[in-house]
């Protein structure tokens, strides 16, 4: 039983790869550079996604590719860096895409989902990242819907709730698995280099 997990055992004291509990020993400069890079990647993903015409005539249904990098930062660099990646991405992304009106929806959804992420992160280790991702995607959509109801003063928009939860599950699973698989692969690569 115990001997069939040798690959994972070397993961434990890795220099750059995250431990399952998400803590990591990285020098501050490296952390800063990684945060900046992840922000840039997230921004590119956000802008590309925003320039693709929406698939469905329903608000809030999108893949949320930028969230891959927020999750990546959360599990490899910690809460502070993830918060930086996400808030910078929202502000710069809104400016770059010129959709300042959707800024409020974006912020309310993202704030809610990020609060959920940092509160629940301790319960979900690296191999369960996809679960946290789905939960945060669903919360993001609910927050956005709540903001839309508040802004338009139309409670009838709440009828979109089921389809937004459904899209949150699909998109969250996709982005979560992306971040999770990349993090696991990276930790294995770092192990081999050591």
């Amino acid at each position: 039983m115990k001997t069939n997990k040798p690959a994972n055992s070397t993961l434990k004291q890795n220099f750059t790869a995250p431990k399952p509990n998400g803590q990591i020993d990285i020098p501050r400069t490296k952390k800063l550079i990684l945060t900046a890079m992840l922000t840039a990647f997230a921004l590119v993903a956000f802008v590309i996604e925003a320039s693709i015409p929406p698939l469905t005539p329903i608000y809030g249904i999108k893949l949320g590719l930028a969230n891959v990098f927020t999750l990546f930062a959360l599990y490899s660099l910690g809460t502070h860096c993830a918060a930086a990646v996400m808030s910078l991405r929202i502000v710069l992304g809104s400016i770059f895409t010129g959709q300042l009106v959707s800024f409020i929806y974006s912020v309310s959804g993202s704030l809610l989902s990020f609060l959920l992420m940092i509160l629940l992160k301790r319960f979900f280790q690296l191999k369960q990242l996809w679960v946290l991702s789905i939960l945060s995607a669903v919360t993001h959509n609910i927050g956005q819907l709540a903001a839309a109801i508040f802004m338009t003063q139309t409670p009838a928009i709440a009828y979109y709730l089921p389809v937004l939860i459904l899209s949150g599950i699909i998109a969250g699973a996709f982005t979560g698995l992306c971040a999770q698989l990349v993090l696991i692969r990276l930790s294995k690569i770092n192990n081999n280099l050591d």
Partner: peptide
């Protein structure tokens, strides 16, 4: 290290069950 609690097999099993 292989048997350390971080990567205990019982935990790996519980991951799968939880997932």
């Amino acid at each position: 290290i292989i048997g350390s609690d971080l990567y205990d097999c019982s935990q790996t099993v519980s991951y799968k069950v939880k997932n």
